[in-house]
């Protein structure tokens, strides 16, 4: 299984994908017990994945301050909501610089590497996104601190077929809004208090594993590679993404409203097309 990934950001060819698919684990959808929780194999796989993304690095248990949330049994393997929360004490002397979200069992485990900046609200982190899950697997969130340490939290998810699930229930409509974005801001934007916003990017995010039986070929991978969010000219979060993100990527992130400014988003996809969006943020003065 470790064959599937040699290094991060590997570009998938149809052959690699086909191999990944044939080695995929068969799945019964009916079991309701928790007996299928992580097995030794899952931890062996994590060792491989860890070595690929964090070679020769020690990863400490971050369960005490990182919470990784995902449904134990996903409703839709192609759209599994995942959130990472981390609380860092104000006097800790360090902050979280990146969070890497890994779906161990996916052909490309990296769902996203989130680079965080001060504008994201200081030491704490709150990120949500939606991912594809190709087979029952552990997922990991790995936080790297400003003083160079790594901490991880893990979760077991029962879902299968998310990467090869057919694209788009309504293909014509989906392609018509390619590159369009939405920003959902909370109604209340108090100055100086971190708030959560949601960014939606309309993009098919084809995994390269979706087989078209009519043309007898795989739909070529076509996905969002990076998302950069800035506020009032300062970076909030840069995300490196890959095929493990769901179609129409969704991202919840935090920022701290201050004097009037703009949220700017720049999205780059695998065809090197760039999409941009701006949203004015009108904060309310603290009362």
């Amino acid at each position: 299984m470790s064959l599937r990934v040699k290094r991060p950001h590997v570009r998938l060819t149809a052959a690699v994908v086909a191999l990944a698919m044939t080695t995929g684990v068969a799945v019964a959808q009916t079991a309701t017990s928790r007996s299928g929780d992580a097995k030794p194999d899952d931890y062996e796989r994590w060792e491989n994945v860890r070595e690929i993304y964090f070679p020769d690095r020690k990863i400490e248990d971050g369960a005490a301050f990182i919470t990784l949330e995902a449904p134990y049994r996903a409703q839709d393997a192609a759209l599994v909501p995942v959130s990472v929360k981390a609380t860092v004490p104000r006097d800790a002397g360090w902050s979280i610089k990146t969070v890497t979200l890994l779906i161990d069992g996916n052909p490309v485990p990296l769902a996203g590497k989130f680079h965080l900046f001060d504008e994201a609200g200081g030491g704490g982190v709150e990120i949500s996104t939606r991912v594809r899950v190709n087979e029952y697997t552990l997922i990991h969130a790995v936080a790297e601190t400003s003083d160079g340490r790594l901490f991880s939290a893990e979760r077991y998810v029962k879902a299968a077929g998310g990467c090869s699930a057919p694209a788009m229930k309504n293909p014509e409509q989906a392609m018509a809004r390619l590159g369009k974005m939405r920003m959902n801001l909370p109604q209340s934007l108090p100055v100086g208090t971190p708030v959560t916003a949601q960014l939606l990017v309309s993009h098919p995010n084809h995994s390269g594993m979706q087989f078209d039986q009519i043309s007898r070929t795989y739909v070529p991978p076509y996905f969002v590679k990076s998302i950069k969010v800035s506020y009032a000219g300062q970076p909030v979060m840069d995300v490196e993404t890959d095929i493990s993100l769901s179609e129409d990527p969704s991202l919840h992130f935090t920022f701290v409203p201050k004097a009037a400014g703009e949220l700017d988003v720049q999205v780059l996809d695998s065809k090197d097309d760039v999409y941009t969006g701006e949203w004015p943020v009108t904060p309310q003065p603290a009362s």
Binding site: A26, A28, Q29, G161, S164, A165, P166, A167, Q210, F211, D212, Q213, I214
Partner: peptide, 18 residues
């Protein structure tokens, strides 16, 4: 019909087997 069915054919066949 045909493109929708063929996009899911493998999954449908597997599920029928299960």
């Amino acid at each position: 019909y045909q493109s929708a069915l063929m996009g899911r054919a493998d999954a449908y066949q597997r599920r029928l087997e299960e």
